[in-house]
Design a protein around this nucleic acid. Structure first.
Length: 418
RNA sequence: GUGGCUUUAGCUCAGGCGGUAGAGCGCCAGGUUGUGGUCCUGGAUGUCACGGGUUCAAGUCCCGUAAGCCACCCCA
């Protein structure tokens, strides 16, 4: 049995790599248009970082992390998400001392030990953005607008945006207590999962899809009613801004996020056609995270987008992004032509042409087939006769026309570009 | 973590009640001794996921393992 890849770790094979590059490049361009700069942090962090930021009771921390001891006896963890590491780096390097507002983006692999399913890998990739130093609801709207622009650029079908207001830490706490009481009062009709969640994480029960639970959940207090006046004003301004930006959205009072650090505005972009798990990207405000990790009071808002899910959606649409530029195939048929071929391939590549060859120097017919297979626009034929005459055959693979040209790259480029 | 399904050629898949494997596509060659993409003809390739068991005989039945998929759970 040949060695297989590790479960849940996926290879990206050609030509898929081109699609990834196109998506990552589109993301980088959108981020730059919004004034964001890239930050790259290591895969490994101290385990404490995630335990303290994401929340020790969450599934991610309690059972999904790749945690191990390194040779120095430190407990380290392969990052399960991006935000904690970015905040850590922000504090580690005292970036807050440079300026008040920071716009950062990152992209890269994340690791969670999960039961596999399509669009749910153990090594998966996220593209995320973080905005530090602005408490304004306009900042929340900017983060949402950025994602919206990104998805629009890629042509994501069936896009929808849901938002909610979790309120302040205090109001969220009061709400959790009220909800817990409500759930306890109806524990007899709730499903087993909801009974368990009543104690561990009552807000999660709101997401339950079991029919029997719906009446109880429908009658539960709404988190929006618990938000304090300031948080309510913030949310209202946020919505007005979305309207002004022309971004359609819907309030979903049942939506809660899985990571503990969120406060206030949370949002989730979904797409139909992703199956059971339809979340494309999600995020929200986390004004307390920086201080919880030992930094100065710094309001923050951010998001993360699942790249594999995005690619799943884009599917066939972008499955065959052709390589950029003109493709030329150099067919060499005679040892006498090797010197000319070496010089030509170099000169043509410098001019920005994609030059491919069959270095096995098979027969003309198979070299032509190879040229066709790679999608060559042009073929340069270097045979005994041509080289003896001081010329080469230049064939247009679309029209089938072939002409004789000089052995200089300039002569071929002139023809190709005409 | 729970329940269920799947795994046969490079790819997509067919193989009624057990008798050691097929198709299409792709690949290679020839038709065209120096011209591709169309067409025609021919060819190669499988430890039937892996390990055990039942049997005279297992791709086919049983058990285990692994990987993948679906619904939960959870999350991006």
């Amino acid at each position: 049995m040949a060695i297989q890849g590790v479960k849940g770790m996926q290879d990206i094979l050609p030509p898929e790599g081109r699609v990834w590059r196109a998506v990552e490049q589109a993301a980088a361009e959108i981020f730059e248009a919004f004034g964001y700069d890239e930050i790259r942090t290591p895969i490994l962090e101290h385990t404490d970082l995630f335990a303290r930021s994401i929340g020790g009771e969450t599934d991610i921390v309690s059972k999904e992390m790749y945690t191990f001891e390194d040779k120095g006896g430190r407990s380290v963890t392969m990052r399960p998400e991006g935000t904690a590491a970015v905040v850590r780096s922000f504090l580690d390097h005292k970036l807050y001392g440079r300026q008040n507002v920071h716009r950062l983006f990152y992209m890269g692999p994340m690791f969670r030990y999960e039961r596999m399913q399509k669009g749910r890998l153990r090594q998966f990739h996220q593209i995320g953005g973080e905005l530090y130093g602005l408490a304004s609801p306009l900042a929340d709207a900017e983060i949402v607008a950025l994602q919206h622009a990104f998805f629009k650029r890629l042509g994501v079908p069936g896009l929808a945006l849901e938002i909610n207001n979790l309120g302040s830490v205090e109001s969220r706490g009061r709400y959790a207590a009220a909800l817990q009481a409500h759930l306890r009062a109806h524990a007899d009709v709730l499903c087993a999962d909801c009974v368990r969640r009543t104690d561990t994480n009552p807000l999660r029960a709101l997401d339950c899809k079991v029919p029997a639970c719906q009446p109880v959940l429908g009658g539960a207090p709404s988190i929006i009613d618990f938000a304090d006046a300031e948080s309510e004003r913030h949310f209202a301004t946020f919505r007005e801004r979305l309207d002004a930006l022309g971004i359609a959205h819907e309030v979903n009072a049942q939506m809660v996020r899985g990571l503990d650090y969120y406060t206030g505005v949370v949002f989730e972009f979904t797409s139909t056609g992703l199956g059971a798990k339809n979340t494309l990207s999600a995020g929200g405000r986390y004004d307390n995270l920086v201080t919880e990790l030992g930094g100065p009071a710094t309001p923050a808002v951010g998001f993360a987008c699942g790249v594999e899910r995005l690619l799943l959606l884009l599917g066939e649409m972008v499955h065959d992004i052709p390589p950029r530029g003109t493709r030329l195939f150099l067919a060499v048929l005679s040892p006498a032509a090797e010197k000319v071929a070496a010089r030509l391939s170099g000169a043509l590549r410098e001019a920005g042409i994609r030059v491919e060859e069959d270095l096995g120097r098979a027969g003309l017919k198979s070299q032509m087939k190879a040229a066709n297979r790679v999608g060559a626009d042009w073929v340069v034929l270097l045979g005994e006769d041509e080289v003896a005459r001081g010329e080469a055959g230049l064939k247009n693979m679309t029209t089938g026309e072939q002409v004789a040209v000089g052995l200089e790259a300039e002569a071929m480029l002139a023809r190709i570009r005409s």
